[in-house]
């Protein structure tokens, strides 16, 4: 049997299948590209050829799109990213004390003590210093994001870049570039700035104790890993499936939930070919004027999201809400 984890993030949608020993049997990393539903369907299309829906003993979702994902695939567990990342990290290494996770629009620090989360922090309303910012800069410099880290390693020195705000950083980078500093020095400076921002902002007041795992899409960037190691003064570890950790955690949590309940809600991979669409409308029921999202599958409605009062969502997302509790 396999356990499915789906992490619908701002930048990427990750799908993972774990075997009975909680080892990764299959992983798929897709760009969300602003369309989480399509990303999930694309992932399912790839999985459908190799696996059968009946092989799946449990399914879990996480990431900022976890609610929508849950209603589409029929999840047994819907879990926030912090718990999912911590669960996955502890599965591969019981000794981990600190998790640095930098994703598309979130960055987090998770502090573990005796195998449980004892403290965590996330970036505030602003997404400066996260993966989407690196993505944007890579695009501007016309360097593939995968090569960003190699460029940083090539530099002998680091150019100081203002790291507090993505907009400030960008203008600082442009000024430095116009003064003649070369690209790799600027990129290394950018990595240092992000690390400085992370340590002074998100991790402020928290002691980062080894062993440290570096997870999330940004961990692919070897320049960021080096910058963290320089700042912290010790080695940090990037797990093999660093960009799948949220999905792995969701799969593990789903396994536990479905074992308790004795069944799975998973709807199978066939929905890859269904016609799933979302439409949003402004509810006129009261002055809140909530922007409600309605999800259609073929000709039936499978879910509503975004209403504050529960008038729409209570019928369809009830199961998802219950799972959260």
């Amino acid at each position: 049997m396999f356990y499915l984890g789906v992490d619908v993030g701002s930048v990427s949608t990750d799908l993972v299948l774990l075997d009975n020993n909680m080892k990764v049997a299959e992983k798929i990393y897709l760009r969300t590209k602003g369309n989480p539903i399509k990303a999930i369907q694309d992932g399912f299309k790839l999985l459908k050829d190799k696996f059968d829906g009946s092989d799946i003993a449990a399914a879990g979702t996480t990431g900022s799109g976890r609610m929508i994902a849950s209603s589409i695939i029929g999840a047994d567990a819907v879990k926030n990213e912090i718990t999912a990342h911590a669960t996955a990290a502890l599965e591969i290494d019981q000794d981990v004390r600190t998790i640095i996770e930098i994703g598309g629009q979130d960055s987090k620090i998770i502090v573990l003590n005796n195998g449980i989360v004892s403290d965590f922090a996330m970036n505030t309303v602003c997404a400066a210093g996260t993966g989407s910012f690196l993505d944007r800069q890579a695009e501007r410099l016309d360097i593939p994001i995968e090569k960003f880290g190699d460029y940083a390693l090539k530099a002998r020195t680091s150019v100081r870049i203002a790291g507090r705000c993505a907009v400030f950083a960008e203008s600082d980078m442009i000024h430095k570039q116009q003064l003649g500093y070369n690209q790799s020095e600027i990129i290394r400076g950018l990595c240092d700035a992000l690390v400085r921002n992370y340590l002074n902002n998100i991790a402020k007041g928290k002691t980062i104790q080894p062993k440290v795992l570096f997870q999330g899409g940004v961990a692919a960037n070897i320049g960021m890993k080096k910058a963290f190691e320089n700042a912290l003064g010790f080695e940090i570890y990037v797990p093999e499936h660093f960009n799948m950790m949220g999905a792995i955690g969701a799969a593990i949590i789903a396994k536990k939930t479905s074992e308790k309940v004795g069944k799975t809600n998973f709807r199978g991979f066939e929905l890859a070919n269904n016609n799933i669409m979302s439409r949003s409308f402004e509810c006129e029921g009261c002055s809140n004027k909530c922007e409600v999202v309605k999800i259609h599958e073929n000709n039936s409605i499978i879910g509503y999201f975004g209403d504050r009062c529960g008038k729409w969502g209570s019928n369809s997302t009830k199961s998802a809400n219950d799972l959260l509790a």
């Binding site: 879990k79 912090i82 718990t83 449980i116 004892s118 965590f120 996330m122 505030t124 309303v125 975004g306």
Partner: peptide, 30 residues
């Protein structure tokens, strides 16, 4: 700490509150 501004998307606040609740639960159990 929950920071609020003009954002009306609730995903951010939900993640933080859920994760915090999970953490408290585990701490109490522990």
């Amino acid at each position: 700490t929950l920071k609020v501004d003009e954002h009306t998307g609730e995903a951010g606040i939900e993640t933080r509150v859920e994760a915090f609740t999970d953490m408290l639960e585990r701490r109490i159990q522990n």
